[in-house]
Design a binder for these strands. Structure first.
Length: 443
RNA sequence: GGCCCCUUCGUCUAUCGGUUAGGACACCAGAUUUUCAAUCUGGGAAGACGGGUUCGACUCCCGUAGGGGUCACCA
């Protein structure tokens, strides 16, 4: 078994791409086989090395390892040979319309309520007309002549899936400048590199109908096909490929755990719950195309943040220490254990580190109360038990209790109205700083 | 517009003709924390609409509405 993830280096990987990569990866890791990473850079004008490097970096970050790499720009000779064969066998025909011509035709068709598909006018060209275009210096682009038949396959996720190849345009396989469009290299590579299963989004369903005919024209057997539903935004609108806010590197920069990204994208739109999963093995084990629904699923980044937070709440000190150092918030294991349950994101740890280290601007509404408390802060090193004794003393001295007792102390000591349990925090802050803050000093 | 697909709690979904329509997240409430958060427990919450078929329909059929995809010299 071999699957492929074939991104084009024309932009950053976004959650939709990652979901495709994950589906392939999970599928092949579950059943055993090769994961091919193919860089589809046939669009020379838009493909860049920078984006290609970004793809490697993003996949590595997510832990989606691959077994083989191929770059389409290296394989031109193979595509050329296939194209020659298709031409020789009469599957391709030359067309001389310009992009403007085609635009115009499509617009006219649309305005008449007709499907905007190519009218095959080039098929009716006489040799003399073709010669005239050539004499003008026009170079043809080449289309694959679809049979117009109804193609049906058993889709891995959708079941029986028909496509009317008569309802779509004959795909252009070769540009006027001689370069290839995605469709031909994709099929040629799938054959040549031995891809057995194509798993991709449902935006390729119609495409698959045409590609099946190209596989056949090449004398090959089409691979098994699986098309899963696309993601839509939280508002139900289509998730645009151009929404940069959903790019993978943005999630990484936000400090999100890649496991949270994987967990959400692997489970969204499936019957398995979106929940904290500690390891990819769990995801691999639970993966099944039968669990994937057929309706578009709503993607909400908040789900990723939520899972990320839950991961943090149970994270061991050793597993986050490096990240804490990077954030300049490594104050030891006691500190981590004290604050982790209160983190919505790892970034929040910086604020608590500052609470411990200072300076903190105390929030004091009742100076007299705070001053009384300041005098009751015990001397010497504070322990986990110091807080309880301190609070009891303040309660005796002021008569305050409950929220009226705790809130003013929390606000004066931390400058915040929320946060981790005060016991451990109090010990971490220390007697000197606690006393000073209660007196209103920003230390 | 043609072709393809979809429509169950706010969200992701289970149900493969007979169920008090189940779960997860979110939400609300209670407990706990002598505070907020975290945590635990409980609760409210759904079959787009209209026709059929059937003893019986969320489930099958038709129609309507809504959503997604595609119809590029993008991938």
């Amino acid at each position: 078994m071999k699957v492929r993830f074939a991104p084009s280096p024309t932009g950053k990987l976004h959650v939709g791409n990652i979901r495709t990569a994950l589906m392939n990866w999970l599928f092949v890791r579950k059943h055993g086989g090769k994961f091919l990473l193919r860089i589809d850079d046939t669009d020379h004008a838009r493909s860049t090395k920078v984006f290609e490097e970004g793809i490697y970096a993003d996949l590595a970050w997510l832990g989606l390892n691959w077994d083989e790499t191929a770059r389409q720009s290296d394989r031109d000779a193979i595509y050329q040979a296939a194209a020659d064969r298709l031409k020789a066998d009469g599957f391709l025909y030359p067309c001389y319309e310009t992009s403007d011509d085609l635009d115009r035709k499509a617009k006219i068709a649309r305005s008449r309520g007709l499907p905007p598909i190519y009218d095959r006018a080039a098929l009716k060209l006489t040799d003399a007309e073709r010669a005239a275009f050539e004499a003008e210096g026009r170079k043809p682009h080449w289309r694959f002549k679809l049979t117009g038949q109804r193609r049906v396959w058993t889709d891995l996720v959708r079941g029986e899936q028909p496509v009317e190849t008569g309802s779509m345009s004959d795909p252009v396989l070769i540009r006027a400048d001689g370069s290839f469009l995605y469709t031909l290299p994709s099929v040629v590579d799938d054959v040549d590199l031995g891809v057995t299963h194509i798993v991709r989004g449902e935006d390729h369903v119609t495409n698959s109908g045409a590609q099946i005919e190209i596989f056949l024209a090449l004398g090959a057997t089409p691979p098994a096909l699986g098309h899963f539903p696309l993601l839509v935004g939280a508002d139900g609108e289509a998730l645009s490929k151009r929404i940069g806010s959903l790019s993978v590197d943005m999630l990484r920069d936000e400090g999100i755990d890649p496991r949270a990204v994987n967990a959400v994208l692997a489970r969204i739109g499936t019957s398995d719950p979106i929940e904290v999963v500690q390891s990819m093995d769990t995801l691999i084990e639970s993966f099944d195309f039968a669990k994937v629904g057929r309706a578009p699923a709503r993607f909400d980044v908040e789900d990723v943040r939520r899972v990320d937070a839950q991961l943090l709440h149970g994270a061991d000190y050793s597993s986050v220490q490096d990240k804490l150092v990077a954030l300049d918030a490594d104050l030891g294991e006691d500190f981590w254990l004290a604050v982790r349950a209160n983190l919505a994101s790892l970034d929040d740890v910086k604020a608590y580190a500052q609470v411990v280290r200072g300076p903190v601007t105390p929030v004091i509404e009742d100076p007299a109360f705070a001053a009384t408390a300041a005098a009751l802060v015990p001397d010497g090193p504070l322990t986990g038990e110091s807080w309880q004794a301190f609070v009891a003393a303040v309660k005796d001295a002021t008569g305050a209790k409950g929220k009226a007792l705790f809130m003013p102390l929390r606000q004066a000591l931390t400058g915040m109205g929320h946060g981790p349990e005060m016991g451990p925090l109090f010990a971490l802050i220390g007697a000197d700083k606690a006393r000073a803050r209660l007196k209103g000093e920003a230390v």
